[in-house]
Amino acid sequence: MGFLCLRLREAVSEPRDDRDLVGAALGGDESAFAELVRRHQAGVRRCAARILLDAEEARDIAQLAFIRAWENLARYDPRWSFSTWLYRIASNLAIDTLRSRESRERTHAGHLRLVGDAVEPVALGLLSEHEVSRIFDELAAVLPPMQRAAFVLREVQGLPTAEVAAVLECTEATVRNHVFQARQALRRELARRYPEYLPAGGNRS
């Protein structure tokens, strides 16, 4: 029966779900794994980039996350969604990288604005994606690793609180705490470095 279902499914070339692809990959089907990479790469790469704030390092970590997933596929628990499991691997790698980077550097870049960088007052909402991206990377650098990961997964990527808790292996209350603290720090940094971008009335602590 299962076999028949599989044949029928193939015959109408219905897209296979993640668990089917994991099953095929476990049987050694590399193209099934390539399909999983194709499906999930955008989110994993985006999160890695926003947590690490370094494009090159983020690309390496995202690749390594998929390689680890392939090598540990037998340990994947299908009760979780495959993407949750992937985000967990990628987040752990990214957080470890941040921590080792911190202990390696200890010095803070300071993120000084260039003299003459003063801009005309303009709503943040009117800036280009590229400029928003640059400002986020600058401000998010002050967030500690877990806070940054929680903020990126929850607020940038938009994963539900419960899923972020599963990814970061903590409680939902902890996720909310991290997110609220991250927001507060971002507000503070925004007010300090780019007061001209703060929405009217948004200058709260």
């Binding site: 590399e30 794994f33 390539a34 990479v37 194709r38 790469q41 955008a42 790469r45 985006r46 980039a49 926003r50 494009a55 690309r59 995202a62 690749q63 998929f66 390689i67 943040l124 909402g125 800036l127 994606e129 590229h130 928003v132 991206s133 400002i135 986020f136 401000l139 903020f151 607020e155 940038v156 991250a182 927001r183 971002l186 507000r187 925004l190 971008y197 703060l198 929405p199 009217a200 009335g201 948004g202």
Partner: peptide, 30 residues
Amino acid sequence: IEELEPAYALALRLPADAEGDAEAFVAAVM
């Protein structure tokens, strides 16, 4: 929403796509 919570001015406006080609990334992983 930005007036209520300025952090969303950043969070909701970051580019949705990762930089770089998806197929090149898949090939690099494989």
